[in-house]
């Protein structure tokens, strides 16, 4: 069989196998335990019954994730530029960045609710907090890892600090920046979800997927819970896919920075 065909058929087969296994476990369970693992059909029905609810929640979570992510990208970039200025600046700020990173976001949630209120604002801030660290650290590393010879060349030509930054350091930091971006992209939907779970609200446009998770579990609507989990999974996937393709588009012309023959 041609390889291409196998590459399509095999994953599909595995998928079918998993669903079959799922169904098998469901029927194997005794009647009173079947709520633990709803049948595939029941989950499908939940998609139909709670469709509009889930769609709205997905939209809200996407909004929170996107806003927090974009905010984190913009602010972390400016912050990294500052950190790249001197080792002294880095030494002064890194401990606090570390502390921020080490503190589980969950503990910020009640404080945030107190400060900005429950709902989208809190979700955005929590997403921001989760995305910020990998972005700052990677971008800063990129900015200070510029080829020493080139930095010396720029200094030799008496380039101004700003020219050195824009013409040399920022372009050579791009691959690092995109590494940070990929990590942040996987974290952003999770951040929005956790944020929504801990500081979400049904006010305004209604809650997001995190909020919906609480509702469904409190009402024991288990098929809907499974449906929510799947949507979440898909959302995370889309988020990463978009960012990865974006960085591929930009870095395509940059490929020599990944494997430069002359090191």
């Amino acid at each position: 069989m041609p390889r291409r065909l196998l590459q399509v058929l095999l994953p599909a087969a595995i998928g079918a196998l998993v669903i079959a296994l799922w169904y098998g476990v469901h029927t194997w369970l005794t009647e009173d335990m079947r709520f633990l693992l709803p049948a595939p059909g029941a989950v499908l029905a939940a998609f139909r019954d709670h469709g509009s609810e889930l769609a709205r929640a997905t939209l809200n979570t996407t909004e929170g994730a996107l806003l927090g992510f974009i905010l984190a990208v913009a602010i972390s970039f400016a912050f990294a530029l500052g950190l790249s200025l001197s080792p002294l600046v880095r030494v002064s700020f890194y401990p606090y960045l570390m502390i921020l990173q080490m503190t589980p976001v969950i503990v910020f949630a009640p404080i945030l609710v107190l400060w900005v209120g429950a709902g989208i604002k809190s979700v955005v801030v929590i997403t921001f907090l989760i995305c910020f660290f990998p972005l700052v650290v990677n971008t800063t590393q990129g900015l200070i890892s510029t080829d020493r010879n080139l930095v010396e060349l720029f200094r030799m030509y008496r380039a101004r600090r700003l020219q050195e930054l824009w013409l040399l350091r920022v372009p050579s930091a791009l691959p690092y920046f995109f590494t940070g971006l990929r990590i942040a992209a996987t974290l952003a939907p999770i951040g929005a979800l956790v944020g929504d779970y801990t500081a979400g609200s049904s006010a305004g446009n209604g809650g997001g997927l995190g909020f919906q998770t609480i509702i469904y579990s409190s009402r024991a609507q288990y098929p809907a819970l499974f449906a929510t989990a799947m949507v979440t999974c898909a959302l995370g996937f889309v988020f990463v896919a978009v960012v990865v393709s974006l960085s591929w588009l930009v870095l395509r012309h940059w490929h020599d920075s990944y494997d430069r023959a002359d090191g």
Binding site: D147, N149, L150, L153, M156, L167, L168, P171, S172, H253, W254, D256, S257, R260, D262
Partner: peptide, 12 residues
């Protein structure tokens, strides 16, 4: 004018 062993050209 300066020429170096490692060329020192800006990539991209």
């Amino acid at each position: 004018g300066f020429v170096f062993q490692g060329f020192n050209l800006l990539a991209r």
